[in-house]
Amino acid sequence: MQGKQLKSDINQSIDVETYLCSQCRHEIPKDALLCSKCNSYQDWRRYISGSQISLALIAAILSITGIVIPEMYRLFHEPISKATISTSSVDGTTLRVTVLNRGDASAVLTKSWMDSEYLAGATVVRLRNDNDALIPPGSKLVIFDIIPLLSELQSYEGSMEMLGYGFSKAEIPKTEVRFELVQSNGDLIIQSVKLNADDLFNLLRANSNRCSAVAEPNFDNGCIGPGELE
């Protein structure tokens, strides 16, 4: 009799609070995370079903989100360009510049000119390809031709003068190529590229060689300089 009472007391002491599985209704411990019968989760993961319907629903939601969010962004965002001159190099009478546009709209390169205390103001800085005037998002290499209004002899003498500047390390007269960029919102910026003694030496020597091959020097081909007549 005492043995039966003791067994009953032990059973009562190890009773575990239970509840029904959310899926199969099997009785499981209250703190169980996984049903021992149907293996379904009992926490927040029970709301995510592995069925094809649930997977299709999730895929549909992701698909709609992928369409709606970009459209909402475009609705409230006005594309704008952020173009600047990044790097430059001079190779003879050829000037190469890299234009970097960090925006999401195109800018326009509207003007380029020489600002110099040494070369004539009439020096031509000409875009080699007119299509390069449009600067889309990203980076773009733009090439210009520099045509000093100097004869073959004047160009040669100028190159020798620049050679002297290079040897003496003296500062040359200010010589810059300036660029005018118009952003997509109408903002205008002007940037410049400075030419050093080596750049001018190579430019003038190349121009001298160019003009030596011209049969009839004139103002149109840029091989007649100040003080010379056609």
Rank of each mutant, 00 (worst) to 15 (best):
R178C: 12
D91M: 10
D15N: 13
V125W: 05
A133Y: 07
A32D: 04
L75H: 11
H77F: 02
F76W: 11
R46L: 11
P148E: 00
L150I: 06
A206L: 07
L153T: 06
W44V: 11
A122E: 13
L57Q: 07
C35N: 04
E157T: 09
A107E: 01
R178I: 03
V68L: 11
V16D: 08
G103S: 14
I28D: 01
Q183V: 06
C24T: 14
S86A: 15
I190Y: 15
G92K: 00
S81L: 02
G186V: 07
K174F: 05
S86G: 13
Q23T: 15
P173Q: 11
L119A: 09
G164E: 12
A197M: 05
C211L: 03
P29K: 08
V193H: 00
N221R: 04
M162E: 01
T110Y: 09
I143Y: 03
D104R: 04
C211K: 01
V108E: 04
V177D: 02
Q52Y: 06
K30N: 05
Q5K: 13
T84A: 11
M1Y: 09
Q12P: 04
E161C: 04
L203E: 01
R102E: 15
N221S: 05
C24I: 13
I190W: 07
D198I: 15
E71L: 10
I146W: 00
N39E: 14
Q42A: 10
I53C: 06
T87V: 11
P70S: 12
L141N: 15
P29V: 06
